[in-house]
Amino acid sequence: MQTLDWVVLIGTLVSIVAYGTWKTRGSKNVEDYIKGGNEAKWWTIGLSVMATQASAITFLSTPGQAFHDGMGFVQFYFGLPIAMIIICLVFIPLYYRLKVYTAYEFLENRFDLKTRSLTAILFLIQRGLAAGITIYAPAIILSAVLGWNLNLLIIIIGILVIIYTVSGGTKAVSITQKQQMAVIFTGMFIAFFLIVSYLPENITFTKALDIAGASGKMDILDFSFDFNNRYTFWSGIIGGTFLALSYFGTDQSQVQRYLSGKSVKEMQMGLIFNGLLKVPMQFFILLVGVMVFVFYQFNSSPINFNPTATKTVMNSSYAEEYEQLQNQQDEIFLKKKELMTAYADTKTEAIASQIANYNDGDRANRNAAKDLISKANKERVLSVETNDKDYVFIHFILNNLPRGLIGLLLAVILSAAMSSTASELNALSSTTTMDLYKRSFVQNKNENHYLKASKWFTLAWGILAILIACVAYLADNLIQLVNIIGSIFYGNVLGIFLLAFFFKYIKGNAVFVAALITQAIVIAGWWYDWMPYLWLNVFGCALVMGIAFIIQIINSLQDEHA
C-alpha cells in the first residue's frame, strides 16, 4: 500500500458516502424513507438487486474458487433467471396491489397477524446475524493480508454504511449502489486485462484458455446426477431456482429493492435485468480466477495463500516439514512451467497427460500443507482457516498490481461489502418498524414519529452488526454457521410464501401451527445431522406445506361436523 493507493481507496469510499448522504437528505415520511418515494426506474432496481447480492466475498472468494476448482460454480446461478420470472409473474403484482412495505406484511393480508410476526422475526434473526458476517468476512481477510487492525476496520466499514443508510434510507442505498457497482466493474475489468497482459509474451488469451483447459479448469457444465458434486447443471437448475426464489422473493433485503419501483413494469424489468446479467457476471468473475490460475503457472505461488496459516505452521514444530513441501511445490512449478509453454504451442495429448500428473502432485502437496496447518492449529490451540480460496485473488492483487490499482481493487472489495450491508440494515429497520413496532407495539402515532423510529432502528441494527462482526472471531467457522442458520429458517419461510401465493385452500391457523411444528423438526434434523445442511432448505419447505395441508383438511372436516 503506497500513498497513491490510500488516496484512491479513501477518496473512492468517502466520496460515495458523502454524495449519497448529501443527495438524499431530508426524507419527508416513512414511504419516502422505506420505499424511496416509489420513484426507482428499472435499471436502478436491477443494479440495486445485483449490488445487494454481490458482497465482498463474491469478489474475494469466487476467483479463488475458480483457481482451485474451475468454472463449475457458475452452474449455481442457472436457476436464478427462472426464479426471476416466477417472482415477476406471481409475487410482484400481489405485493404492488396491496401496497405493502415488506414481504411479511403481505402474509397478514393473506393469513393473519401471527404468521406475519413469526416470519418477520425469523427474518430479523438470520439477516441480523448475516449483516455482521457481511462486514466480518472481508475484514478478517484484509486484516490478515494487510496487517490492519481487525476491529478498527470493522468499525470503519460499519460507520461508513451507517452514515448514509440512517440519513437517506432506501434512496441513499440505491444511489450509492449505482456508484459502487461502477467502481466494482471498473476495478474488475482493469484487473482482468492486467492479468492477461502479465502472461508471457507468447501466451495469448486463447492459449491461456488452452492451458486452463488442460488442468480441467474449463469444465463449466456437469450433467451428472451425482449428489456429492455440489455444483452440477441439475443442482443449479433445481436447487438454484429454489434458493433464488426464497432469497429474491421473501427476503426483505431484496424485496425492498424492487418495492421502491415506480410501477409494476419497472419492478419486473429490474428483475429481468438481473436475470439477464447475473450468469454472465458470475462467469466473468470466475474467468478472472481462471486467469489468475494461468498466471501462477508461469509465476511461483505459495503452497497456501493464507498468510496467517503459513505463519501459524512456521511457528510450530511442523515448520521443517512445511518448508520441504514448499520446496517440492517449487520443483513441480518449474516442471509444469516448461510443460505449459510446450502445451500452449503444440496442444498434444501426451503433454496434457503429463500436466495432469503434475497437477495431481500439486493438489496432493497443497492438501498435505493443509494437514500440517491443521496439526499446527491443534498444537497451538488455534483455529486458522486452512482453505485458502478467499486469499488467492487478494494475494495476486497485493503482489502484482501497480500503484494506485491496489487501492482501486481494495475499494472494489469494500464497496461490495458496503453495498450489501446497506441493503441489509435498511431492510432490518423497515421490518422492525413496519411489522413489529408500528403494527403491534406503538400504533397511531404521526408520520414523523415512525420516520424517526426507522432511523433509530437502522442505527441500532448497524451497531449490532458491528458488534457481531467484532465477536465473530470467537466462533469456529462462523460463516458456515450463518449459512446453517439461514438453511434452518429459509425453507420454512419459503414454504409459507408458496402456500400464500399458490394454495388458496390453506388458511392462517393451519399455516401458523405447521410453521411452528416444521421449525422444531428442522432444528432437530440439523441437531441430529439427518442431511447436509443445504438440504434443510428443501426439507423445511416441503414439510411446512405438507403439514399445513394435513391440518387444514382436519380443520375443514371438523367445521363440517360442527
Binding site: M71, L89, V279
Partner: peptide, 30 residues
C-alpha cells in the same frame, strides 16, 4: 399488453439458454 411481457420473459429464458450453449462449446474447445 400481456404480449410484451411474454416477450421479455422469453428473452430471459432464451438468453440464458444461449449462455449455456456457449458454455458447452467453450468447454468442448478448451
Amino acid at each position: 399488453p400481456k404480449e410484451r411481457w411474454k416477450k421479455s420473459y422469453t428473452l430471459v429464458l432464451v438468453a440464458n439458454a444461449i449462455y449455456i450453449v456457449l458454455f458447452y462449446f467453450i468447454m468442448k474447445s478448451f
